[in-house]
Design a binder for these strands. Structure first.
Length: 812
RNA sequence: GGGCGCGUGGCGAAACUGGCAGACGCGCUAGCUUCAGGAGCUAGUGCCCGCAGGGGCUUGGAGGUUCAAAUCCUCUCGCGCCCACCA
């Protein structure tokens, strides 16, 4: 009969709740630890993919509590967002009702898994108690110029019917529904994250507790490049073209220039010329093309404007083009082209028969031949040629020398560019935080005064799927201007839900605060989050926005820390039948099913045992059964430890293994999150205790079982509580101190070491642990197996690795 | 195209700083028990040759460094992720 997990799990979940064992506050002399998992979007049913994230955290949480930490371990819900609104349209249910129901189901499932959150700190972002502070912070940002509105080309998702931030466009598609994103010029609200570009970049170096790849992704996303801005005058015109280059060393090799299709100067330059119609047609074609085929490696195309610019360094006249490979969004929207040293320029020059002028050659080379002979651009460093006084210089050196010269002559200046763009936060949807702005004909854009916050979401709205419901709610739109009291209208855009998730972890520190977003002292006590756990998909979304927010809130004086998350663990996904577990793929294993069939402890044990947290986990039904089997074995051992074969003497080997297991399990959890190997060594310990029906004295057996139960308790908390009680304890196992190992108990008198001949394993001998090399060599020589290999051979040398092996090198 | 990561039995995976590859588990095989369920217990299980003692091979592939390589270096193949005409 398997153990009755249903009764046991229910019993202990109620016990924990009743005794409030997971509550945390700031009044403790223990060391604080803030442990956090990325809070979920409440979409309803949990599957094991979600569960894995929480189980990793909870196991660690329980371990930390038993190791004397004052732990903050909260949970909440990222409750605003499109799915709720789509459900509203489809099922004629209000998003709030739908969301609240989902939260209820999800919370129940999380409780069934035995997750040890402090539920008193629950944060739900769709509640006015929370989102009013989104609005409050927005107003502060607005005052400081960190929130602003501008007309700009935006990414518009036709299916979600809203604009998206750059970070939310993945390969030209909407991150949520994968529809092709369109470019629309709209007036939108932005957060000025670019003000923090430099700090966001620089502070990455200090985030040593983050996976390197996440830091690299953020670094690339911020995309800093240092270079030179140079002004090229247009011949026979007052117009000037500003370009940006990271390769000032190639300035003498410029043979043409080109504009992005959207560049406003293009239209000015061709106005009234015979080329005007042709070029306008070309521009239209490119703009349309850009929208449709963002991805493919496009053939370079361009048209000559019939105009020339002047290279400010050489006075050379260079033709101006408009082309499809220059981005309006980066740099200045115009570039200088050096076909000899840039592959893109090279391809373009070849196609349109533009001269190629080499200014850098490899050490010891003259040039690479005629234009026709060249096959690709030379992009490496080298020696400068054809570059006036800079000729003969190393090209690396020339970069700074030419930059100095350009600045001196006032032809341009050094500048820094970032790929990072400001964060577009407006969304044309209902289910989000209303942006607290009022438009008055007389007074213009007026922020809603602090006393009037929150701006509540109206309830009298219809969800038709056509347009933003807020815009159609008269009671919402119509309002009075706070300044002149005249008729005015409200902003109907809501905020991106990533705004909600950018500071929720700070709200957890003081979730009921109603004077401010949070109390500074409380936040100072808990922040930063010591360990954050979540998926890699947020590498440049949530994790970047949260860093920005924390810095911006710090600059508002609301908190002291500049980085929200000290350590980050990105767990892998749960895979079944070759695909990520997801509703749409239809390969989900629900938490309810697992808990119903095997219980929470088995489900927990399996997801931790099957794979290390960072790696993807292959779901296996048989594997789950194996974990269940193990728990049953332990249960049986505790119920009726065999006593017939008890010896009079302590089993020294078992004692050593006990200490070894404590050391291994402790290290694996604390240092590396290697739950899989921790569990493996617990299993080994069990095998050792149970072997031959039990070993050592009765007392020793009892002691080992006790240790086993404690070590297993963070993984299988319910069963271990029950077993703990059976072992005669009246307090919860959570109150028990984590065991410590005794280093002196780990040493063995005799050990087995490997003997190699020429690096090949040829035998094993048992020796005294501290045996000297000479001694051991003699033992090895007299070993029957080894003897054979040494016959008629000369020993050239021996290599001895204490406690590991002896390698005998022979010749002849 | 650029960046990062990964590749170990039939499967999930172990292996500290270069030091006995395959711990632990799943699956499989045989036996016991009971059988009629997908339960329990014991033993075996990387591959090849051999009745066996034993021997040979083996960490995607090819080289190299070393007494010794899954681990370090070079090249190569395959897979995954991120960015992608960023001047």
């Amino acid at each position: 009969m398997p153990y009755d997990f249903k009764t046991i799990e229910k019993k202990w979940q109620e016990y924990w709740q009743e005794k409030k064992l997971f509550k945390s506050d700031e009044k403790s002399d223990k060391k604080k630890f803030y442990l956090l998992e990325m809070f979920p979007y409440p979409s309803g049913k949990l599957h094991m993919g979600h569960a894995r994230n929480y189980v990793i955290g909870d196991t660690f949480a329980r371990f930390l509590r038993m190791n004397s930490h004052n732990l903050l371990y909260p949970m909440g819900y990222d409750a605003f967002g499109l799915p709720a609104e789509n459900a509203a349209i489809k099922n004629k249910i209000h998003p709030e009702k739908w969301t609240d129901e989902c939260i209820k189901t999800m919370m129940e499932q999380q409780k069934k898994l035995g997750l040890s959150y402090d539920w008193d700190r629950l944060v739900v972002t769709s509640k006015p108690e929370y989102y009013r502070w989104n609005q409050w912070i927005f107003s502060k940002f607005y005052e400081k110029g960190l929130a602003y509105k501008k007309l700009a080309p935006t990414n518009f998702c036709p299916k979600c019917k809203t604009v998206l931030a750059n970070e939310q466009v993945i390969e030209g598609k909407c991150w949520r529904c994968e529809s092709e994103v369109e470019v629309k010029n709209l007036e939108q609200w932005f957060y000025k994250i670019t003000d923090y570009a430099e700090e966001l970049l620089a502070d990455l170096d200090g985030l040593t507790g983050w996976p390197e790849r996440v830091r690299i992704m953020q670094r690339n996303w911020i995309g800093k490049s240092e270079g030179l801005s140079v002004i090229f005058p247009v011949k026979n015109s007052a117009q000037k073209i500003e370009i940006f280059t990271t390769r000032p060393d190639t300035l003498y090799g410029v043979t043409f220039m080109t504009f992005a299709a959207e560049h406003p100067l293009v239209l000015e330059l061709i106005k009234g010329t015979e080329k005007e119609t042709e070029i306008k047609k070309f521009i239209n074609k490119i703009v349309v093309q850009k929208r449709i085929t963002r991805l493919e490696d496009k053939e370079k195309e361009g048209v000559f404007l019939g105009k020339y610019a002047v290279n400010p360094l050489t006075g050379e006249e260079i033709p101006i083009y408009v082309s499809n490979f220059v981005l309006m969004e980066y740099g200045t929207g115009a570039i200088m082209c050096v076909p000899a040293h840039d592959q893109r320029d090279f391809e373009f020059a070849k196609k349109y028969k533009i001269p190629i002028k080499e200014v850098i050659v490899a050490e010891g080379q003259r040039d690479r031949g005629t234009d026709a002979q060249l096959e690709h651009a030379y992009i490496e460093d080298g020696v400068m040629v054809n570059s006036a006084q800079f000729s003969g210089m190393n090209s690396k050196e020339a970069i700074s020398k030419i930059s100095d010269y350009v600045e001196e002559k006032k032809l341009g200046k050094r500048v820094v560019h970032y790929k990072l763009r400001d964060w577009l936060i407006s969304r044309q949807r209902y289910w989000g935080t209303p942006i607290p702005i009022i438009y008055c004909e007389k007074c213009g854009t007026v922020p809603v005064p602090e006393n009037d916050l929150p701006v509540l979401l109206p309830t009298d709205v219809k969800f038709t799927g056509e347009g933003n419901p807020l815009a159609k709610s008269e009671s919402f739109v119509k309002c009075k201007c706070p300044k002149c009291k005249g008729d005015a209208r409200r902003e109907t855009d809501t905020m991106d839900t990533f705004v909600d998730s950018s500071w929720y972890f700070e709200r957890y520190c003081d979730p009921k605060q109603n004077k401010l977003p949070f109390d500074k002292q409380k936040v100072s006590y808990w922040m930063p989050v010591n360990q954050y756990i979540g998926g890699i998909e947020h590498a440049v979304l949530h994790l970047l926005y949260s860093r920005f927010y924390t810095k911006a809130l710090r600059d508002l004086g609301l908190l002291d820390c500049g980085e929200p998350f000290s350590n980050l663990l990105c767990q892998g996904m749960v895979v079944k039948d070759g695909f990520k577990m997801s509703k749409s793929k239809g390969n989900v294993v629900s938490v309810d099913d697992m808990v119903g069939k095997y219980g929470a402890d088995t489900a927990r044990l399996f997801v931790l045992f099957a794979s290390p947290p960072e790696r993807d986990l292959d779901w296996s039904d048989e594997g789950v059964a194996g974990s269940f089997r193990f728990l049953n074995k332990v249960w049986k051992l505790v119920q009726s430890p065999k006593s017939e074969v008890q010896s009079q003497d302590i089993d020294e080997n078992l004692e050593r293994i006990k200490h070894l297991t404590i050391k291994k399990v402790t290290g694996d959890i604390r240092d590396e999150f290697h739950f899989n190997t921790a569990i493996a060594s617990i299993m080994e310990f069990y095998n050792e205790i149970a072997r031959d029906g039990g070993r050592g004295t009765r007392e020793q057996l009892k002691d080992c079982i006790k240790t086993l139960v404690i070590l297993l308790s963070p993984f299988a908390p319910h069963l271990c509580e029950e077993m703990w009680q059976i072992l005669g304890h009246s307090e919860s196992i959570l109150k028990e101190k984590w065991p410590v190992w005794d280093e002196t108990k780990l040493v063995q008198e005799k050990i087995t070491i490997a003997v190699q001949i020429n690096g090949k394993l040829r035998g094993q001998i048992e020796i005294k642990t501290d045996g000297a090399e000479k001694e051991i060599l003699e033992i090895a020589k007299s070993d029957d197996k080894i003897k054979k290999y040494l016959e008629n051979k000369k020993i050239i040398k021996t290599i001895f690795v204490p406690k590991k092996l002896l390698n005998i090198v022979v010749g002849g």
